[in-house]
């Protein structure tokens, strides 16, 4: 059995959405993790809850809230409309859905790595003349490298599987916003689609396994040193 061009498009779109989402989320996740690991400010608990909320919230709820926010009548959507930027029902919406839903996983991994950094290293760096940003770039960033890698692989895997939030704000338009899980959903609910659905499922499993394997390898190496 061969893939139809639309199936291939779904696989490639999933990869594109996952990659772009990871690239977008990584710097944001790094900043968020830094705030939570090193920051001392009021409202830290609130911020922590906010970042972790998508982990426990049904993705459909996240999707619906994003739709309210980014829709043509939504507060952000209204701002973007005159600039000619439309987010919902485009592949960008799928990226945003992935970023929001996978964010807690990413932040958690990076934060764990950051909290493992000896505070004396930061103090030593400051006393040697490095300013706060310099310390982040030359000490914190390299020493949380494994957390960043482990977090991104988990995040990427989560993004490949994103369904609930995506279907609400990006829709299920073949060739435009139909990612792998959405395509499987389509095939599974059509009369003669079981075969293709199964094939796409296998692709999904293989992708997930590869990413998880990568993730475990990174963690193993971390334990090794």
């Amino acid at each position: 059995m061969m893939f139809a061009p639309a199936d291939m498009q779904a696989i490639l779109l999933s990869a594109k959405v996952g990659s772009v989402a990871t690239l977008v989320a990584l710097p944001l996740g790094f900043c968020a993790a830094w705030l939570l690991a090193f920051g001392r400010f009021r409202g830290k608990l609130l911020l922590e809850l906010l970042f972790n909320l998508p982990l426990t919230l049904p993705p459909v709820v996240v999707g619906y809230l994003l739709l309210l926010l980014l829709g043509v009548q939504g507060p952000l959507g209204k701002l973007l409309e005159p600039l000619g930027i439309r987010i919902i029902f485009t592949w960008k919406a799928a990226v945003i859905a992935s970023v929001v839903v996978g964010f807690p996983l990413l932040v958690r991994s990076i934060r764990l790595a950051m909290e493992g950094i000896d505070p004396q290293l930061v103090q030593a760096a400051r006393s040697l003349g490095a300013g706060p940003l310099d310390v982040i770039l030359t000490v914190v960033l390299p020493l949380s490298r494994r957390g960043l890698m482990a977090g991104s692989s988990l995040f990427f895997a989560r993004s490949l599987g994103e369904f609930g939030a995506t279907i609400i704000i990006a829709g299920n338009i073949p060739g435009v916003t139909q990612t792998l899980p959405l395509a499987i959903y389509d095939y599974a609910s059509s009369p003669r689609g079981e075969g293709t659905a199964l094939l796409l499922c296998i692709v999904s499993v293989v992708l997930a396994l590869v990413v998880l394997l990568l993730h475990e390898t990174i963690l193993q190496r971390k334990r090794g040193t």
């Binding site: 290293l121 030593a124 760096a125 400051r126 003349g129 300013g131 390299p142 020493l143």
Partner: peptide, 20 residues
């Protein structure tokens, strides 16, 4: 003055070398 402008260098009990 922030630490980086004081130019007071520290040597700790646990060396605190940058492992990377």
């Amino acid at each position: 003055l922030p630490p980086e402008q004081r130019r007071i260098a520290l040597v700790f009990q646990q060396h605190a070398l940058f492992p990377h």
